[in-house]
């Protein structure tokens, strides 16, 4: 069967995949894909540059939330915010990395579900507070961490922020996704209540929380497996052995 749409634009997708497989610089890959796709869509060179420039201008809002908090966070880091966050969590002797990240996941998802997506974020919360606390809680139990473990804890802290945000915000009625869904379905001749769309999001949002919380919980066991039992518990073991002797 001959396609009734042009399949040539898929070449742009191929450029992206090839670029990431070859591990070229992502900026170059994206520009190459954009130029390929625009030329296929029968733009000339000037038209291609215009499409790239106009698209880049239209999406400036994406970078704002990253750039604007930087001065505050940087200043606080200069005065030891990250070190203090580590020391602060270590006061809670029994707090584990897994528990801390589960609490953060829950708070992030619940706030996003009522539309308060401003609470959280990688620049404002994860880098200065959540990641150092996750590392601090692990250090309190296991001593200095190897870099590999430290990096994995940081990545898990970032993942808690993402999962909480994504699966929380979609069950908020006024969020863009729900608006997009109802608008699109209306265009296809189907009318749905925004509230119904939001409510039908809840089962998946619950699955997302359970799955990710379970994986965060398993961090604690993985730390014990790789780095040995927590310091306090090891002391207790020594005491029992001595008593037995």
């Amino acid at each position: 069967m001959a396609p009734d749409v042009s399949l040539w634009p898929l070449l742009g997708v191929a450029v992206i995949i090839a670029g990431f497989v070859l591990r070229l610089n992502p900026m170059i890959v994206v520009i190459a894909a954009a130029v390929t796709t625009a030329l296929i869509a029968k733009y000339d060179i000037a038209g291609t540059l215009t499409a790239i420039g106009a698209g880049f201008l239209k999406t400036r809002n994406l970078t704002l939330a990253i750039i604007l908090p930087l001065a505050t966070i940087g200043l606080l880091e200069r005065h030891g915010l990250r070190q203090h966050a580590q020391a602060w969590i270590q006061r809670f002797r029994n707090a584990t990395t897994g528990q801390l990240l589960i609490v953060y996941l829950a708070v992030r998802e619940l706030f996003a579900a009522v539309g308060l997506t401003g609470l959280g974020g990688h620049v404002q919360m994860v880098r200065p507070l959540i990641a150092p606390m996750a590392e601090g809680a692990a250090e309190a139990r296991h001593g200095t961490l190897p870099d590999k473990v430290r990096h994995r804890l940081r990545a898990m802290a970032a993942s808690a922020d993402n999962v909480g945000l994504f699966f929380g915000e979609d069950i908020f009625v006024a969020f863009g996704a729900v608006v997009l869904i109802t608008t699109f379905l209306h265009g296809s001749g189907i009318d749905v209540e925004p509230l119904h769309v939001a409510l039908w999001g809840i089962p998946t949002a619950a699955v997302a929380f359970i799955v990710h919380a379970w994986r965060l919980h398993r961090i604690d066991a993985a730390l014990v497996r790789e780095l040995g039992p927590p310091a306090a518990q090891a002391d207790a073991d020594v005491a029992t052995t001595e008593a037995a002797a």
């Binding site: 898929l10 994206v30 520009i31 796709t37 625009a38 869509a41 790239i52 880049f56 970078t63 750039i67």
Partner: peptide, 30 residues
């Protein structure tokens, strides 16, 4: 962060170019 700071915007731009060129229609057809 270096150039990674600019990447989100660049990718969003690519998304606009893709939808302009009909990449979505081709994927749906396949």
């Amino acid at each position: 962060m270096g150039w990674a700071l600019v990447l989100p915007q660049l990718l969003a731009m690519l998304g606009l170019v893709f939808s302009d060129a009909g990449v979505g229609k081709a994927v749906a057809w396949v």
